[in-house]
Every structure is written in C-alpha cells, then in structure tokens.
C-alpha cells in the first residue's frame, strides 16, 4: 500500500464520516423544525456520503488489484456503502427519510471501527477466495445485512410509534419494516445459496457446519421465524416487530461476533484477529 493511498484513504474515510454527520444533523434539524427543505438537504447530503464511500471502495480496489472485501477493515468500508444504498433505495421508493439518522449513525460507527482496527494492510487473497463467487457472495450478503439493518431501524420505529402513517403512502413503519425484511431475506437466501455452491466448488461440501455458516443459518432461520410469526393470530403488530428487531442481533453476531466462539478458530470465514 502506498503512502499516498494510505493518506488518501484516511482522508476519504474522514470525509465520509463528516458528511454522514452533516446528513444526520440536517435531518435532526429538519425533523425538529418541520422544514421539508432541510430534510431534502439531508437526503442529498446522505447521497453525497454514499458516493464518497463508493470512491473510497473503488480507490482501494484499484490499489489492491482485487475486490477489497477480504479483511474486516475492508468489509467495514463495504457495509456503510451497502447501508447507504439500501437507505437511498428506501428513500426513493417509500420516502423513508426517517432512516437517515439511523443509517448515518451505523455508517459512522462502521467507518470509525474500521479506522480503529489495525488490519488496514492490503493482504493477498488465499487460493480459496480466488473465485468468481467471491464478489457476488460477499456483496449479496452485505446488501442483505444492510437491508436487514433498515428493517431493524424501522421495527424500532414501529415499536415506538405504532400508529404513525406516512402522509404520502399511508403506510406505517411496520409495513415498511416488513418490506425491508422480505428483500433482506430474499438476498440472504441468495447469499447462502451462492456460498453453498462456492463451498462445493472449493472444498467439496456445500455445507460444512462451519461456525460462520451456522450463524448465517441462524440469521436466516430467525427471519424465517419472523415471516411466519407475523402470520399467526395475535402475533402481528408489536410482537412481530419485536421479533424482527431481535432477529437483527443474529445478523450482527454473524458479522462481528465470530471471534467470541470457541469453535471459530478453524473457520475459513472468520475475520482473523490481525
């Protein structure tokens, strides 16, 4: 990694964090003063942060000569990008600007965590990761994680304000959370299947009960439970939203908690402590 790139990357991270902070402040100001112009400015600023995040990833991609999704540090650059993408899509489709402070907060946390982690080094891809499945598998998963984060934020909002309805669509937070879960679950399923096919090509097993695989299954089962629970009598509304919000804990643990497991040391998926 060149010094120029290192300095540029740190500057870009600082710029993305700052832009997200401005977006969150603009939204807060807009929500407090009920000024639509500020909310629109917040959305555009959020979009700028997303674009800068894209530049950050592209720059590292060029520097590394490969997709920068190998280390925890690299995925901590990718995750805020995917959260940004999911949020912008939801803003575009359903006017869910209310997600901006949540998404900006998680982006700032992710990028701040990346800066604090010492595995900034660009490392070589081991043979097992040199596969056509590497990019689609990882990107699909992170889009799923990002969308499920949106569902988590919306579920919290639904628990807080169950009767709120959008003036434009008439839709409440619960319906929006459910939409986000559906998309997140579909992409999560696709990610699992791509990982299974890749595992078969690389190691001869499409499922090897690896801790990360198992927690991917736990996340998938958790959202499958949510999708069924909300159809049960008496389980709609707050109860299903609580299940939805709780399910995101499985996603967080799958992403960041693997090193806590005694079974993780031999995992091919776990981000090793640098």
């Amino acid at each position: 990694m060149s010094l120029e790139h290192s300095v540029r990357e740190q500057s870009l991270i600082a710029a993305v964090i700052a832009t997200h902070a401005v977006a969150a402040l603009l939204w807060t100001g807009g929500a407090a003063s009920r000024r639509k112009g500020l909310l629109t400015a917040a959305a555009w600023t959020f979009g700028a942060a997303f674009a800068l995040n894209g530049v950050l990833i592209a720059d590292r991609w060029v520097e590394a000569g490969r997709a920068p999704f190998k280390t925890l540090y690299e995925t901590l650059l990718l995750y805020p990008f995917c959260v940004g993408l999911a949020t912008l899509v939801l803003i575009g489709l359903h006017r869910l600007r209310v997600l901006i402070p949540f998404s900006s907060a998680v982006c700032i946390f992710g990028l701040g965590y990346a800066v604090a982690k010492p595995d900034v080094e660009i490392v070589n891809l081991p043979p097992a990761l040199q596969s056509v499945w590497f990019v689609p598998h990882v990107v699909t998963y992170f889009i799923a994680y990002a969308t499920l984060f949106a569902s988590f934020a919306l579920a919290l909002l639904a628990l807080w304000k169950p009767d709120w309805r959008s003036a434009e669509s008439g839709e409440g937070f619960e319906a929006s959370a459910n939409r986000a879960v559906k998309f997140g679950f579909a992409t999560l399923s696709l990610g699992i299947v791509m990982g299974a096919i890749w595992g078969k090509e690389a190691w001869g097993d499409y499922w090897s009960w690896d801790p990360k695989e198992n927690w991917a299954l736990v996340s998938w089962l958790a959202y499958l439970i949510y999708l069924h629970v909300r159809l049960m009598r008496g389980w709609g509304g707050r109860r299903s939203m609580a299940v939805c919000a709780a399910s995101f804990a499985a996603v967080v643990f799958t992403y960041l908690g693997m090193n806590l497991l005694p079974t993780a040391k031999d995992s091919v998926h776990v981000y090793q402590q640098p």
């Binding site: 198992n214 736990v218 439970i225 069924h228």
Partner: peptide, 24 residues
C-alpha cells in the same frame, strides 16, 4: 400449523447456535 413451523424453526435455530457455542 404455523405454530408448529415457528416452534420447529426456533428449535433448529437453538440447536444450530448451540453447535457453535459448544466445542464440536
């Protein structure tokens, strides 16, 4: 029944998570 589905999925979830917490 939906209740059975939810219960079965929850048991599978718990078993899978337990398999990562205990040495295997």
């Amino acid at each position: 029944s939906l209740e059975f589905s939810v219960a079965l999925l929850a048991v599978l979830l718990l078993a899978t998570a337990t398999g990562t917490v205990l040495l295997q």
